[in-house]
Amino acid sequence: MSTTATLSTELTDLRSSLTRHREFLRVTVRGMSDEQARQTPTASELSLGGLIKHVRTVEEAWMRFAVGGAELMESVQSDWVNGFRMLEHETLAGLLADYEETAAKTERLLEELDLDTAHPLPVAPWFEQGATWTVRRVVLHLIAETSQHAGHADIIRETIDGQKTMG
């Protein structure tokens, strides 16, 4: 198998996995009202709408990193205080539409980017000093992030109305 075919298969597999975990998150909120999506029924302050909002913000930030490194990633200031909250003026439909837009942009970017392109990570206490991540590692991180929060969403949904997405 040629290197191009291997990369194409790898990219297809990565995109397919990310798409699957995004769908788990979207299915979890299907049929919910805005009020339900704002609820924080567990010991944490997480809500379903807030999780969708957070996963979108994280995906956008990491894709900026994939394109232009830490400088581009940090060029947009995120509202970390409200990043996990679904605010009164926000709707679940609006958050899902924004998430769809982000997913489509990510898919377009992944068609253009080389998975082996690497950038130094931002300076932060949770990153190894001087470490770099490839675009591939960014996509793997997005899969993990989305999957983890889809699991959180499933627990919250089950707490709200007994509905289970993944079990």
Rank of each mutant, 00 (worst) to 15 (best):
S17A: 14
L18S: 00
T19P: 00
H21F: 13
F24C: 00
F24T: 01
F24L: 05
L25N: 00
L25K: 01
V29F: 03
R30W: 07
R30A: 15
M32F: 12
M32P: 04
M32N: 10
E35F: 06
Q36E: 15
R38L: 07
T40F: 13
P41E: 08
P41L: 10
P41D: 08
S44K: 03
L46D: 02
L51K: 01
I52R: 00
H54L: 04
T57Q: 11
E60P: 06
A61Y: 03
R64V: 12
R64L: 14
R64K: 13
A66M: 05
A66F: 02
A66N: 03
V67N: 05
G68S: 01
G69N: 08
G69L: 11
A70G: 04
A70L: 03
E71M: 06
S75I: 10
V76T: 13
S78D: 13
V81R: 10
V81Y: 14
N82R: 12
L87R: 14
E90F: 05
E90S: 07
E90L: 02
E90V: 03
T91K: 05
L92Q: 04
L92K: 06
A93I: 02
L95G: 04
L96A: 02
L96K: 11
L96I: 13
A97E: 12
A97M: 09
Y99C: 10
E101V: 09
A103I: 02
A104C: 04
T106G: 01
R108Y: 08
L110T: 05
L110P: 01
L110G: 05
L113N: 08
D114G: 02
D114I: 06
P120Q: 09
P120H: 09
L121D: 04
P122W: 14
P125F: 15
E128T: 15
G130K: 11
G130F: 14
W133N: 07
T134Q: 11
V135G: 02
V135N: 04
R136T: 02
R136A: 03
R136V: 02
R136M: 02
R137M: 15
V138N: 01
V138T: 10
H141P: 01
L142G: 06
I143N: 06
A144E: 14
A144N: 12
E145C: 01
Q148N: 08
H149R: 01
H149K: 02
A150F: 00
G151Q: 06
H152Q: 14
A153T: 00
A153L: 00
D154E: 01
E158N: 13
E158F: 06
E158H: 13
E158W: 08
